[in-house]
């Protein structure tokens, strides 16, 4: 057991278990938290279930989730299930650990993390594995941390929770999958897309730009969205939004940067122009009409941190 960053936080060691022994592993974790005679109380406010898939290199889509959870629990202490479907896994493996805040003689449990690695054949068993351990009376947020081809699997996980989070940046066929996602929104519980939140500074900058321009309904808007090499899905999402709001005709261009972020958005209509460009941690808005060229405005860019976005998504829900 070790004390981690922040003198008040305490992290237990990992307790390995079989899927059928999860309750015992949780008990062992609590025993470790109270081993020094501390009073231990659960302070969690949500159940959180993340489901992802290990890549061909063995790296799990949920591997980054441990770091994201550190951010998430600052806002929403959680019992968290991190489920990774791994084609290389011969049999299921489970690890349970916890993080607590030391408050004098008592410890408040902020995170009970249950990391589950399963072979693909176990996929149908995930809801049955998770459901008995969800804490009653707390909202359950499901994070689909994967590409999205299998609607049945998605629906099965979605049925576990009150709110589902996806990250459409992971979508490999966004032109098909984004409309599918939109359709999924119309049934069942609420769905939040992290990439939609990530686009907030761009959406806001475009809206600020139109505050300075003279737009009449029905005006034809044309534009270009330039994105990094991994940013097709993000660019498509923004393009769909602008098309739905402006009737805009938009072209997507792949830029030189290797990441998935947007680089630049340019919109033109009736001799007016609006340009939003990423500059460091900000986005820069330029707007001009035939009569006026406004001074550029800087707006804070997306914090982009997965944990903070997850926390925001859960707050919104």
């Amino acid at each position: 057991m070790t004390t981690i960053a922040g003198p008040q936080l305490f992290r237990t060691s990992a307790h390995a278990a079989n899927p059928g022994e999860l309750q015992q592993a949780l008990t062992a974790t609590w025993q470790e938290l109270g081993a020094a005679g501390n009073d231990v109380a659960r302070a969690v406010t949500i159940n959180f279930v993340a489901v992802g898939r290990a890549g061909s290199d063995g790296a799990a889509a949920t591997a980054d989730m441990q770091g994201a959870l550190d951010h998430l629990i600052r806002r929403s202490p959680a019992r968290a299930f991190l489920v990774t479907i791994d084609a290389a896994a011969a049999r299921p493996a489970v690890e349970v650990r916890a993080i607590a805040r030391d408050r004098g003689s008592s410890r408040h449990v902020l995170l009970e993390s249950i990391a589950v690695r399963l072979p693909p054949s176990w996929s149908p068993h995930v809801p049955g594995l998770v459901r008995p351990l969800l804490i009653n009376d707390l909202p359950t947020h499901v994070y689909w941390a994967d590409d999205w081809h299998d609607s049945a699997a998605f629906d099965a996980m979605r049925a576990l929770g009150d709110h589902t989070v996806v990250d459409s940046r992971r979508f490999t066929l966004p032109a098909v999958q984004l409309p599918e996602l939109h359709r999924a929104r119309t049934t069942g519980g609420p769905v939040t897309d992290l990439d939609w939140l990530r686009l907030r500074p761009w959406r806001r900058a475009c809206a600020e730009g139109f505050e300075r321009l003279h737009f009449l309904p029905g005006t034809t808007v044309q534009g270009v969205i330039r994105h990094g090499r991994g940013g097709t899905s993000t660019a498509t999402l923004l393009a769909h939004w602008l098309e739905s709001r402006l009737g805009a005709q938009l072209a997507l261009e792949e830029g030189e940067t290797p990441d998935s972020a947007l680089e630049n958005v340019t919109l033109r209509f009736a001799e007016q122009e609006l340009e939003v460009t990423r500059t460091g941690s900000c986005v820069l808005l330029k707007a001009s009409t035939p009569a006026v060229c406004y001074l550029p405005l800087r707006l804070p860019g997306s914090r982009g941190n997965e944990g903070e976005l997850l926390a925001a998504a859960i707050d919104i829900a």
Partner: peptide, 9 residues
């Protein structure tokens, strides 16, 4: 003249 994206603000 309207801001078609005004609800973002």
């Amino acid at each position: 003249s309207v801001n078609p994206l005004g609800d973002e603000l």
